[in-house]
Nucleic acid binder design. Structure first.
Lengths: 138, 138
DNA sequence: GTAACTGCAAAATATTTGCATCCTT
DNA sequence: AAGGATGCAAATATTTTGCAGTTAC
């Protein structure tokens, strides 16, 4: 397994276990976001389902991955870029879900625009998900 | 039960049943969005859980309500305004989730801005959820 | 009367928790 | 050695499906 994976875990002060390495490695090798089910499917020789739940939770708390909201009861997770820190996400980019291949992609360079809210509303965090057709499915 | 409820159902060519009237009435009386669980809790003398699932599904198909994506595996539903039609939602407004009272509110007058996507990406629909503090929780 | 809707039971899924064991540091 | 992580079993919770009885039109 790559050194990169171990470095990432070390940076987050997480012990370097086999499951964590394999799950994080999968994220690094995957373009686009992964759901719990995706991970279960794609890690051949099984990590326990419960361990996946716990790993995703820890990774999210540590700012290694962030969640992408969805309207179909299936949260997806994607790697955070450098500017995420423990307990403090800055996944301030637009997410794209392809209607055709149903991949979910972080458009890291497309920022969520600031919104003028009505009087009395104070924003903390914005999330934007655009669906349509991705560049590979034209 | 109000005439408004029956009119709405009639307009969508749905038969006017007790469950549908009560669920739709709840939406009309509620500010903000409702999850399946909310509905179950707030309709005192129980409608079957399964009926609630099926009713929400039909309402969504008919353009009476729309879903609001979330990052916690709990879809919320909110009434559509006039411009939603069968199989064709235009809930093109920003949704606000209050961190304090955790209400989800449709900001009907705040439109989701158009986004400039990278080459090759074609948008069909955008969703935006802003969280923070709402005007009642200041 | 007929098609559509509902409730119940049950199946299928998904998520959480407790605990004994194993692994990392 | 000690604390944390994992797997397993089991408890909960959520969603889906089939079907028989009921209701709207």
């Amino acid at each position: 397994m790559q050194t990169e994976v171990r470095e990432l875990l070390k940076k987050s002060r997480l012990s370097i276990t086999d499951s964590r390495q394999r799950i994080l490695d999968l994220f690094l090798r995957t373009e686009g976001a992964l759901s719990h089910a995706d991970i279960e499917k794609r890690i051949a020789d099984g990590i326990d389902r419960v361990t996946i739940y716990r790993t995703l939770q820890v990774f999210e708390e540590k700012g290694i991955i962030h969640t992408i909201p969805s309207a179909d009861n299936s949260i997806k997770y994607a790697l955070c870029k450098e500017d995420c820190a423990e307990g403090h996400h800055h996944d301030n980019h637009v997410h794209f879900v392809c209607d055709s291949c149903s991949k979910t992609i972080c458009l890291d360079h497309v920022h969520v625009p600031d919104i003028k809210l009505p009087k009395g509303f104070y924003p903390r965090e914005s999330n934007m998900v655009v669906s349509g057709v991705c560049s590979e499915c034209l």
